[in-house]
């Protein structure tokens, strides 16, 4: 690496990290939070004994998982305005990513709920709990432990997927990279640098996953 490339690398790091901090990370975090709430609702709907409720969730999940994320983004960005619904870049991006995460995480949460032994429901009913209290106090805490690894995967994918938001002009890490690269014509260097920043974020997330698992593991035989 010659001196001027090194200088470019160093001077680009600031904008890229800033793009991550002001764009990628908040976009991923807020979409994940909203997506999780959505996913929990969908998972419970899927488990409902009411056929039509579970079917609504089933269709939703199938649509989200059966269509490209980029297409979903474009539908929200360019499709909705043609129906007269005009949203800002950010809310549109958050909506699109939340909808997507909701669909994927719903299946994770549903599987985690189903993985809790039936005897836990029965013991909870035996002590007099209602269905909703059983869910919140007995089943979901146990399902949480099971769903941390797959949900971490979902989250890490989401962090990387937010780079697609650059295509709809949201300022985040990758859009910064594109602009610097176009300006400096140092495509290899800048895109590798962007990749490096994504990688560091994901490393931090994996470490966080490890901590979370350990914390939730305190009641499981090791």
């Amino acid at each position: 690496m010659n001196e001027s490339s090194w200088e470019l690398f160093v001077s680009s790091l600031g904008p890229l990290v800033l793009g991550a901090i002001t764009g990628t990370i908040p976009l991923a975090l807020s979409s994940f939070a909203i997506g999780l709430v959505l996913a929990l609702a969908l998972a419970l709907m899927r488990l409902s004994r009411q056929r039509w409720i579970s079917n609504i969730a089933r269709v939703y999940i199938s649509l989200v998982r059966g269509t490209p994320l980029l297409v979903q983004l474009y539908v929200i960005f360019y499709g909705l305005p043609s129906l007269g619904i005009v949203l800002d870049y950010w809310p549109s991006a958050i909506i699109a990513f939340s909808i997507n995460v909701g669909g994927y995480a719903a299946e994770v949460i549903r599987a985690a709920i189903l993985s809790v032994p039936k005897g836990q429901w029965e013991a909870a009913y035996m002590v007099g709990m209602s269905r909703s209290r059983t869910l919140s106090r007995i089943i979901l805490p146990q399902a949480a432990r099971v769903s941390v690894p797959p949900l971490s995967n979902t989250f890490i994918s989401l962090v990387k997927d937010t780079s697609l938001a650059s295509l709809v002009l949201v300022t985040e890490l990758f859009r910064e990279a594109e602009q610097i690269a176009a300006f400096s014509q140092e495509f290899m260097l800048i895109y590798l640098e962007a990749a490096l920043v994504y990688w560091v974020i994901c490393l931090v997330l994996s470490t966080g996953q490890g901590f979370l698992e350990k914390r939730l593991d305190r009641y499981v035989a090791r």
Partner: peptide
């Protein structure tokens, strides 16, 4: 049904304790 459940308590073959408590 809740009243019925309130009157009795059950001990299970496989204990079914709450593992996270």
């Amino acid at each position: 049904l809740t009243t019925l459940r309130d009157r009795s308590a059950m001990v299970f073959q496989h204990y079914n304790l709450f593992p996270h408590k």
